[in-house]
Design a protein around this nucleic acid. Structure first.
Lengths: 239, 239
DNA sequence: AACTAACTAGACCAGTAAGTCTAGATAAAT
DNA sequence: ATTTATCTAGACTTACTGGTCTAGTTAGTT
């Protein structure tokens, strides 16, 4: 009866299910994971369908079909539709986080001009922000936040907050290195991100419009201009 | 059979239904509107329930109950659940727009210091942005945009876009008046808004956290600082 | 007072979807 | 070859809800 002989309470245990609830098979052998990649397939399909139709509208049948899997298999991996939602969102947030962190890491104090570095990082951050998956994640989160308030922690703890913090770290390094005027690195990070994503937000229309490459570059350049005018130590030759 | 003897196709006519589909009673008399304020009650209730539960989850019964009205009455005013959603969102967007425009209008070239004016306007804009209804509207829009793409035009045409444009107008005036460095007023408007709402967005956690008054003031001040350092004509005495 | 349009309460139908269950297929490990 | 865990297809139960309809009520207008 009990599927795990009572080792863990799975009824609400999304914290476990979310991170790595590997089915038993995975651990039995050495090479292992006979066809447990189905789990990932289900997660991907679930995210896609949830994003497209919304939680309430999304049918588990549809998710199973999109994953190329039987409905029972879905319930084999995830106890609940709700659990599935949390897992899918967590997985997507993790993915978005690593992408963003990789970009933030490129913001070092050494290297050519600070302006050029900021612009490159800016363009890449905008790229991340404009991924279809990113838009879907933000939309889905906004949609279901009132029904499942804990989604906020699942995502915020994995994405927005951590990215801002990582960027703040870099800003602090730049300030210490004398490349940026001293100030609150957290505010600097927030404002840099705001200058990048704010204009994008308006122009992208919640992700329904694809912003052309050139426009994204313009936004990044304008953002860096404004940012540097406020935070650069020596004034760049203007005009 | 046809409720309006075929004058208008009501089956999908949200453009009409949205703006002012007043029931006949309203026009029969002079003083009129016997109890047609029910329409507003329904709209308010619908927005509240849609925002709380999401479109798919929201039951028309629940909306009727919250409006203090029979279900049939809802269908008397609005042909469809879908029509009701559009109408409710449009009404809410209209309201948000007028509030925001009233604030933007306060940004004139005369008056004490430009910095003080910008700060006041900034604080008020943040206030508008943080209204529970504003958050609900943005969340709801994000939630249903994939299902009802036309919602975007209903809202964007009434809110975001118009506000940005109005602000850009003011920026242009300030540039012409020599109070701001000449440049693209549209970009200035976007960046000013971004500097205000970006940090608020992160801190408010999709509207689930109430930002204290002092924190909002800090954000506005920081935004104005950065903005003026980039756009002021003469450098403000720093330090 | 008579008329009329909007309202109410509640029954009702039809469609849909979460979650369970059964019986059988597949494939890794011993 | 046998065992064991997962998988599949699909029927099934249960519950909910959009929209309609009916019968009767309320209140403004003439």
């Amino acid at each position: 009866m009990a599927r795990l002989t009572g080792l863990v309470d799975w009824s609400k245990g999304y914290a476990v299910a979310v991170s790595d609830a590997q089915p038993v098979t995975r651990r039995t052998g050495g090479v292992a994971r006979g066809r447990i990649d189905k789990r990932q397939k289900i997660l991907d399909a679930a995210f896609a369908v949830f994003a497209r139709e919304g939680y309430a509208q999304a049918g588990v049948d549809a998710i199973a079909a999109e994953a190329g899997v039987a409905k029972a298999t879905v319930y084999n991996h995830f106890h609940d539709k709700e659990t599935l939602l949390r897992a899918a969102i967590a997985a997507s947030a993790d993915q978005a986080l690593t992408e963003n962190l990789a970009v933030v890491e490129q913001l070092t104090e050494r290297g050519e001009s600070l302006r050029a570095t900021l612009e490159t990082v800016g363009i890449r951050l905008i790229q991340c922000y404009c991924r279809e998956q990113s838009w879907a994640l933000r939309r889905l989160l906004a949609a279901e936040i009132t029904q499942f308030p804990d989604l906020l922690e699942i995502v915020q703890g994995r994405a927005t907050e951590r990215i801002t913090e990582a960027l703040a770290d870099r800003m602090a390094r730049l300030m210490i290195a004398g490349r940026l005027r001293a100030g609150d690195p957290r505010v600097a990070a927030e404002q840099f991100l705001a200058l990048l994503t704010g204009p994008v937000e308006i122009r992208a229309r919640l992700g329904t419009r694809q912003i052309p490459e050139s426009e994204r570059r313009d936004v990044a350049r304008a953002a860096v201009d404004t940012f540097l005018q406020a935070y650069a130590v020596e004034r760049p030759a203007s005009g």
